[in-house]
């Protein structure tokens, strides 16, 4: 269970990006975080595994407080948090297998990592997971030879190789075409059930969020404006999350009637 309380993040001396955020993600639920760009979704996710340093507040994963770990302990904690990125963040010039195994880097001794002599157990697991997502026959291909959807599957397998206790996905489908993004969302949902993993997904596409997740968190100005199951995300809630923003910012296929009032940002 992930537990975030009173999380604040401020870059430099500006307005805080996250303003005292509280969030709990229990068990194996798939949670979508929606909101306009600049709402703080990405910062929130990166605060959890401390790619971004929180200004204050606490984050705990399964009763281990992440927010004040340092060095070796922090790295050990990061192993247990898998992350999937919008632009896949693969190392293009390495093979798919090396990219996948890089999810194990936190566990491997240095000489094994350097000489690419991965333990049998890891190789077995890699092939299993790659087969599960349908990329096992690409193991020896270079990552930049793959299509977008395949690359994101490599990203997913890399995260699963960590044997994570939670998956964070930052706009995992934003660089993909609609059909592929549905496949990836479906994959994330079924993996969540299969591995009993909580999955936290930043997502721009509200339609996808409604379809593939159990719970939607709506953010605006670094605060949570909405937190309930998808069926309760009605027009009023949408307006609260997206008020005053142009329709294309709303990430919905069906364009709602434009609201005339412009809120002071």
């Amino acid at each position: 269970m992930l537990k975030i309380s009173n999380l604040v993040k401020r870059y430099g001396h500006g307005e805080p990006v996250l303003k005292g955020l509280d969030l709990e993600v229990p068990g194996n639920s798939v949670v979508a975080i929606i909101g306009a760009s600049g709402a703080g979704k990405s910062t929130l996710l990166r605060c959890i595994n401390r790619l971004v340093e929180p200004t204050s507040g606490t984050i705990a994963l399964n009763d281990i407080v992440l927010s004040d770990l340092k060095g070796r302990e922090l790295r050990a904690a990061r192993r247990r948090i898998g992350m999937i990125f919008q632009s896949f963040n693969l190392v293009d010039r390495l093979t798919v297998m090396e990219n996948v195994q890089s999810g194990r880097l936190g566990y491997l001794p240095f000489w094994r990592a350097a000489s690419r002599r991965y333990p049998k157990r890891d190789i077995r697991r890699a092939y299993e997971l790659m087969e599960r997502v349908g990329i096992a026959h690409y193991a020896n291909k270079r990552a930049d030879e793959l299509s977008g959807g395949e690359r994101q599957r490599v990203g997913v397998v890399r995260a699963l190789m960590q044997e994570p206790e939670i998956l964070l996905a930052d706009e995992p489908t934003a660089s993909l075409d609609p059909k592929t993004s549905e496949q990836i969302m479906e994959l994330l949902r079924s993996l969540s059930a299969e591995f009993a993993l909580p999955v936290l997904i930043n997502i721009h596409n509200v339609a996808e969020a409604r379809l593939y997740t159990d719970r939607i968190v709506g953010m605006r100005y670094g605060k949570i404006m909405f937190d309930a199951e998808p069926s309760r995300l009605d027009k009023a809630a949408m307006d609260e999350i997206y008020a005053g923003l142009p329709a294309e910012e709303r990430g919905e296929e069906e364009t709602p009637a434009p609201s005339l009032q412009v809120s002071a940002a």
Binding site: M97, R116, R124, Y127, N140
Partner: peptide, 13 residues
């Protein structure tokens, strides 16, 4: 239908 995958892996030279 599961294929059997090798248990060792070497980077293609």
């Amino acid at each position: 239908t599961r294929e059997t995958w090798p248990e060792t892996w070497h980077r293609p030279p």
